[in-house]
C-alpha cells in the first residue's frame, strides 16, 4: 500500500524543475579521449541527508565496471543522477567529451545512448515480448512518427536476434506479465540492447535469478563489453568476481577504493566498511 502512496505522490522525482525538452535529438557521443562517462564532484542531498558527497568517477569506452558498496552508499542515487532522474546539487556529469547530462532529461539521455535497468524488473506487462522489444528499438520516438510508423522487416530481424540472445526465442507472442522473474530481467536487458546504447547501467541484474540464469547473464555481459560500456551495481560477490575487471567501492556517497577485485578486497578500509567497525 505504501508503494502506491509514493507512486501517486509525484514528488518522488525532481520533476518540478526538470521539464521534458521539446525535441529529442540523438547526438553522437564524442569518445575521442577514450572516456565515455565523467562524474566530477557530484553532490546530492535530500533534506539534509547527503546521499552523494563529491563523487568523482570516470568510465572508459567499452569498459565493464562493477560498483559495489554497502546499503546507502549512494549507488542508486548515482544512477539517478546519470539518467537525469535526480538533479545533482553541484558537480558535473559528462557523457563523452561534450554532453552535459545535468542539463538533459530522461528521454534525451536515453536517446543519447544511455540505457538503464532498474532493480525491480520493469517491463510493459500488458504488451507481448515482441512489442516490448520493438518499442525499445532505436528509432524516432516522437509522437508524429508513432502515428504513421510501419514495422520494417529489418526491425523484425533485429527483434528476433535479440530474443535469441536473451533466451526468449519462441516467446514472442507471450504477454510480458506472464514471464518468470528471471525472464523479465532478461527481457529488460534485451530492451536496453534494442536501444543500441553506448553505456548500460545495470542495477542488480541477477537479483532473484537461479545459479544457471546468473551464469548465462554473466556470459551475456562479458560478450557485451567492448561493444558497449557497462556499469553493473551488484551485491552478489560471486557474480562480481565472475565478470569484474575494475571494481569501484562506494561508501557514504564517495569513492572509497578502485582497482581490480583482488586489490579492493585487500584494501583495509574496504574490509572495515564491509565487516563493520
Amino acid at each position: 500500500m505504501w508503494s502506491h502512496f509514493s507512486k501517486s505522490a509525484p514528488g518522488t522525482t525532481s520533476g518540478g524543475e526538470a521539464p521534458y525538452a521539446h525535441v529529442l535529438q540523438p547526438r553522437q557521443v564524442d569518445v575521442s579521449h577514450g572516456v565515455i562517462l565523467y562524474l566530477e564532484e557530484v553532490a546530492v542531498s535530500f533534506d539534509g541527508f547527503k546521499a552523494l558527497r563529491g563523487l568523482s568517477l570516470s568510465i572508459d569506452d567499452g569498459e565493464l565496471r562493477c560498483i559495489i558498496g554497502p546499503n546507502g552508499a549512494g549507488k542508486t542515487t548515482m544512477m539517478d543522477c546519470i539518467t537525469g532522474k535526480t538533479r545533482p546539487d553541484s558537480g558535473s556529469i559528462f557523457f563523452g567529451q561534450g554532453m552535459d547530462l545535468t542539463r538533459m532529461n530522461e528521454p534525451e539521455i536515453a536517446s543519447a545512448g544511455i540505457g538503464r535497468k532498474f532493480q525491480k524488473p520493469t517491463v510493459f506487462e500488458h504488451h507481448t515480448v515482441f512489442d516490448n522489444l520493438e518499442l525499445a528499438r532505436k528509432q524516432d520516438k516522437r509522437v508524429r512518427r508513432s502515428l504513421t510508423s510501419h514495422q520494417a522487416s529489418e526491425a523484425r530481424d533485429q527483434v528476433c536476434e535479440t530474443m535469441k540472445r536473451i533466451g526468449l526465442a519462441g516467446h514472442a507472442d507471450l504477454a510480458a506479465g506472464t514471464l518468470s522473474h528471471g525472464q523479465k530481467q532478461w527481457l529488460e536487458i534485451g530492451m536496453l540492447l534494442m536501444q543500441g546504447p553506448r553505456l548500460l547501467l545495470l542495477d542488480e541484474p541477477v537479483a532473484g535469478m537461479t545459479d544457471d540464469e546468473t551464469e548465462r547473464t554473466a556470459e551475456l555481459f562479458l560478450s557485451l563489453a567492448g561493444e558497449h560500456s557497462l556499469i553493473v551495481v551488484e551485491h552478489d560477490m560471486a557474480f562480481v568476481a565472475r565478470i569484474a575487471r575494475t571494481v569501484t567501492v562506494l561508501h557514504e556517497g564517495c569513492v572509497l577504493a578502485e582497482g581490480s577485485l583482488d586489490v579492493v578486497q585487500n584494501d583495509q578500509r574496504v574490509v572495515e566498511v564491509y565487516l563493520g567497525r
Binding site: 507512486k7 518522488t12 539517478d80
Partner: peptide, 20 residues
Amino acid sequence: IQRRPQGLFALKGRSVDLGG
C-alpha cells in the same frame, strides 16, 4: 503544484519506487 508537486511539507527523499 507545478512548482512543488509534493506539497508544502512533504519530505524530499530518494526514490522509493522506480516502476511505473
